[in-house]
Design a protein around this nucleic acid. Structure first.
Length: 440
RNA sequence: GUGGGAUUAGCUCAACGGCAGAGCGCUUCACUGUGGAUGAAGAGGUUGUGGGUUCGAAACCCAUAUCCCACCCCA
């Protein structure tokens, strides 16, 4: 035997035990169903990518969080994927024959070496849906409509999707005259407006060495309502990129209305910034106000990314749905459907004694053949122990058959939730149990 | 990556320099055809890990790991 080691997990990683797995699977199935309803196809890619595939795509800050994953004696420089958009771009570049627009979804783990916190893990699942090869703002609008479909289907009421445009932010930089190398600091300061207020943003800009005249110009802008497109259009009229961005935001909001998106839950917010460097067009982010847990979805248009892997550039837009945070929020707010069980098992077939074992096993296999998730007890234990097991696992039903039942050709069906028992003819048991399960 | 708090039985916590404990849970029994009720008995601990101070450390000091909180960033 090897030496004893205390069982531990790597930092920021966790096991997902069966009861939690059932919740996760429920959320994933809802999301997958909505994705497919909008015509997105499933895709899978390796957890590992060549390091060069990932490097230089996310910006220096994010790049520090990428996990190295070299084989001990391997020659390839490998890294664990950091998101699903870059692998998608690689796939599209490698498979030019894919029919465009290419709509795919992928639900898979990604790894980021961040400092863990509640709702922030180093290994976590992302659910991405992207459209490659469409320049129309209708594609972006469809992504937003899909986010709304997912969140409302999961039972979310208090959420808001914020919209901004990378080109508007770029124009804002041009307008204020902030040098390119300081733009990141400028955007990050602006992004905090809601959180730290106007004076906080001023302090943040000063801290980030934004020149004083630029600080004043930006602050004047921030005094406008953050969704006043007309006012911003006027101010940015000398900056074609800004105007183009505002045009696109207007088209986008119109399209979302045509798609039935509730306008009250969609807010243009010209101070919303997303960190990833590859965004080029509209950007969007969904936040819930109730538990403060950060954003539930985030995405945008990245028309330049695929061009980094291919001679022919392709436009792309999409979103990440933050399943981990959705699950955390739903757990906290008890949003899971009440009939979402704690176990997959629907019935426990008890074994009355050794002479009944064969009969119980046969009954169990019959139930399984009929599609009922069934467990059969292993040992010659008392019924008390067997029912206690069923109760501990929250198995809803138990079947009992001893000499009394045999004599009458019946089986006792016990409902563990109500404690009610009924005798059912042996040859009707599958049909009757099926009804009970359906009603539960 | 920076700063703060926490870490003792499976879980929630107590003991604050002098014999490591309680509640819940678990096992067995009261109960040879019935779980979540009651009563009794029992099992379970390198006090996160490694050093140090002390006659004596769960407690004080140092380091380290993990979790939580705030930054940073983000799903």
């Amino acid at each position: 035997m090897a030496t004893w080691v205390e069982p531990r997990l790597p930092r920021g990683m966790r096991d997902i035990l069966p009861q939690k797995m059932l919740q996760r699977r429920y959320v994933m199935r809802v999301i997958e169903n909505v994705f497919e309803r909008f015509g997105f196809e499933p895709l899978q890619t390796p957890a590992l990518e060549l390091a060069q595939t990932l490097l230089g795509k996310y910006g220096p800050d994010a790049e520090k969080l990428i996990y190295d994953a070299r084989h001990r004696e391997g020659k390839e420089e490998l890294a664990l994927r950091y998101d699903l958009s870059v692998p998608l771009s690689r796939v599209v570049a490698m498979n030019p024959e894919l029919t465009k627009p290419f709509k795919r979804y992928q639900i898979a783990p990604v790894w980021r070496a961040e400092r863990p916190q509640k709702g922030r893990y180093r290994e976590f699942y992302q659910c991405d849906a992207d459209i490659v090869g469409a320049t129309s703002m209708l594609a972006d609008a469809e992504i937003i409509a899909m986010i709304f479909a997912i969140l409302s289907e999961l039972g979310f009421k208090e959420f808001v999707t914020k919209l901004n445009h990378r080109q508007v932010l770029t124009a804002l930089g041009e307008y204020s005259g902030v040098p390119t190398e300081l733009l990141g600091g400028l955007y990050r300061a602006i992004d905090k407006l809601e959180k730290i207020g106007r004076d906080g943003v001023r302090a943040e800009m000063v801290k980030n060495q934004i020149p004083a005249p630029a600080v004043e110009k930006i602050l004047a802008l921030l005094d406008l309502p953050t969704d006043d497109l007309a006012a911003w259009r006027e101010i940015l009229r000398a900056y074609p990129r800004g105007i183009a961005g505002i045009d696109e935001l207007e088209q986008l909001t119109q399209h979302t209305r045509a798609l039935g998106v509730n306008p009250a839950r969609l807010q243009v917010d010209l101070t919303m910034v997303r960190g990833l460097e590859y965004y080029t067009g509209p950007i969007f982010e969904t936040v819930v106000t109730e538990p403060k847990i950060g954003s539930l979805t985030g995405g945008g248009r990245y028309d330049g990314l695929i061009g980094l892997f291919s001679k022919t550039a392709l436009p792309a837009t999409g979103t990440t749905v933050g399943i981990e945070r959705i699950i955390d929020v739903m757990d906290e707010l008890r949003m899971f459907p009440p009939n979402l069980g704690k176990t997959v098992t629907q019935v426990l077939v008890t074994v009355f004694d050794a002479t009944q074992r064969a009969a119980s096993l046969a009954l169990g296999m019959e139930l399984r053949a009929a599609g009922v998730n069934t467990e059969v007890w292993y040992d010659a234990d008392g019924l008390g122990k067997q029912l206690k097991y069923a109760a501990a696992k929250a198995i809803p039903f138990a079947l009992i058959a001893g000499p009394d039942e045999n004599a009458a050709a019946v089986i006792t069906l016990r409902d563990l939730n109500s404690g009610e028992q009924s005798q059912i003819a042996r040859d009707e048991i599958i049909a009757r149990l099926g009804e009970k399960i359906a009603a539960a």
